[in-house]
């Protein structure tokens, strides 16, 4: 009985130079061609806020924004993210001033262990922007790609609803 299941990458030197636009800055690094955007952010750039829960697109903990859309960075190759604007949890606050969604997660206890939280917040920011958060049912659907094993969904729901309402008010008055 033998085992050998993983696909074979090409042999030879796998390192390539990469240029990524992350949180408004240009970052240059050398990475393996197999490196996911998640691993490039975490290991290459030290941006460890994005989490590796499953590395297979099953949990949502690695959610970041690429050109304004929420993507699973564990299913995105770093080489493929070149030339696009990447935003991570480290890029949503303005200095020490938390973004409204971050503040709402604090205000409504939208987390417990905190591991899924960066992904939840990145998902929520996009869901609010995309107008998918107009009702409790809409939030539950829009946020169901981000698993929280602690079961903080109730706080997440209240946080997303309140941030969405606040955003809508600001847009209404702005």
């Amino acid at each position: 009985m033998t085992d050998s299941t993983a696909p074979r990458p090409p042999t030879g030197d796998h390192q390539v130079p990469l240029e990524l636009q992350v949180n408004g800055r240009t970052a240059r690094l050398s990475a393996d061609i197999r490196t996911t955007l998640l691993d490039a952010l975490r290991d290459g750039l030290g941006l460890t806020g994005s989490k590796k829960g499953c590395d297979r697109g099953q949990c949502g903990a690695c959610t970041v924004h690429v050109d304004g859309r929420r993507v699973l960075s564990c299913l995105t190759l770093a080489v493929g993210a070149q030339g696009k604007q990447v935003t991570t949890i480290e890029g949503v606050a303005e200095g020490d001033r938390l973004s409204p969604v971050q503040q709402a997660f604090l205000d409504h206890d939208g987390f417990q262990c905190g591991f899924c939280t960066p992904g939840q917040i990145m998902s929520a920011i996009c869901a609010i922007r995309d107008g998918d958060t107009g009702s409790d049912a809409a939030v539950r659907e829009a946020m169901s790609g981000n698993i929280c094993r602690c079961g903080a969904y109730e706080g997440i729901l209240r946080a997303v609803r309140s941030a969405a309402e606040r955003t809508a008010r600001q847009e209404g008055t702005g």
Partner: peptide, 21 residues
């Protein structure tokens, strides 16, 4: 009472075992 480690968790600064190098 709000969690005292909340800000670290919503900013991505909370460091879990795999986050350190």
């Amino acid at each position: 009472t709000a969690r005292v480690d909340g800000t670290a968790k919503v900013t991505g600064r909370a460091d879990y075992a795999a986050d350190r190098t």
